[in-house]
């Protein structure tokens, strides 16, 4: 069963993630008075990209390895997630820190691939991506640490449950911080600065095309879904031990709702500039720190 949980989780994310992008695009289109592509369009995009030629701007293996590692690390993080309140069989050799570092590894691979391409636009994007990771990964970490502080364990089940056990001041503060940071986690306006198409042409990905780019796109989709999942599982606490199907259904509905929110915010804001965003992130960091402090004090 526990082995199956890993597979179910992986399949659940792999299958649903592109659909969520479809939802995002549809809603954005509607806000912009457009029809928008069909909901299944992202699947077609991925398939199309897989069939294209792979262009390698660097000519060396690091460039080739980066997309593989990016997808693998995000999938690794997903493989660790509990399913329906039950820990996966990897729980005995992994914990919160593993999860956080796997996510960082995902970002790291994008950077390495970008720098490998040698394109100045990719380098600017990489520089921005890294700054975003530096400033925002701690917000994710602190959300989970709030759970650690409550649960006294780094196990993922206890941590996700821990976040919402005490709905006090710290819980609501952290929830607000996370919701704002979510926009950056999923790289939507106002925080899609590392990709900023009109300035640096999708930044880190500028040299990637075809299947390599498909992997990056997939990674991005999975990451978006992951961060939304974390909000649903952590703050809303719908883990429903035992009933996998029901749990998955409720999860899906809530994640969809969250994506609607993300799309609406994304469609109604312009993009920040990096220096402005950094100040913003700084404030988020302090608030998250405050929330953890309150959490330790039991509020």
């Amino acid at each position: 069963m526990k082995v199956a949980a890993v597979v179910i989780n992986l399949l659940y994310f792999l299958l649903l993630a592109p659909f969520l992008e479809g939802v995002m695009r549809k809603i954005t289109a509607r806000i912009q008075s457009r029809q928008g592509p069909p909901l299944y369009q992202p699947y077609l995009d991925l398939l199309k990209l897989l069939g294209k030629e792979n262009l390698n701007a660097a000519g060396h293996p690091v460039f080739r390895l980066a997309p593989l590692l990016a997808l693998a690390s995000v999938l690794s993080a997903i493989a660790l997630l509990p399913l329906a309140g039950q820990s996966s069989f990897l729980a005995h050799s992994s914990d919160l820190m593993t999860l956080i570092y796997f996510l960082t590894l995902g970002g790291f691979s994008i950077l390495v691939g970008a720098l490998a391409s040698g394109n100045p636009f990719a380098s600017v994007g990489a520089s921005r991506e890294m700054m975003t990771i530096i400033m925002l990964e701690p917000v994710l970490a602190m959300t989970l640490i709030l759970g650690v502080v409550r649960a006294g364990s780094l196990g993922l089940v206890s941590v996700t449950e821990g976040v919402s056990t005490n709905r006090g001041l710290s819980y609501f503060l952290m929830m607000a911080v996370y919701l704002v940071a979510l926009q950056a986690f999923v790289s939507r306006q106002p925080f899609d600065i590392p990709e900023a198409e009109v300035e640096i042409l999708e930044g880190p990905y500028v040299e990637y095309s075809g299947p390599n780019y498909a992997l990056f796109r997939y990674t991005l989709n999975l990451k978006r879904m992951f961060y939304s999942w974390l909000f649903v599982a952590g703050f809303l606490g719908f883990m429903l031990p035992g009933n996998i199907i029901l749990c998955l259904v409720i999860q899906t509905v809530l994640i969809l709702a969250l994506f609607v929110l993300i799309s609406v915010i994304g469609a109604t804001h312009p993009r920040f500039r990096m220096d402005q965003a950094l100040k913003f992130y700084g404030i988020l960091l302090l608030l998250a720190l405050l929330a953890v402090g309150l959490g330790v004090r039991g509020w």
Binding site: T28, Q32, S33, P270, R271
Partner: peptide, 10 residues
């Protein structure tokens, strides 16, 4: 150009 495509479309 400032990343606000909704303004663009509207």
């Amino acid at each position: 150009l400032i990343g606000f495509d909704t303004v663009f479309m509207q």
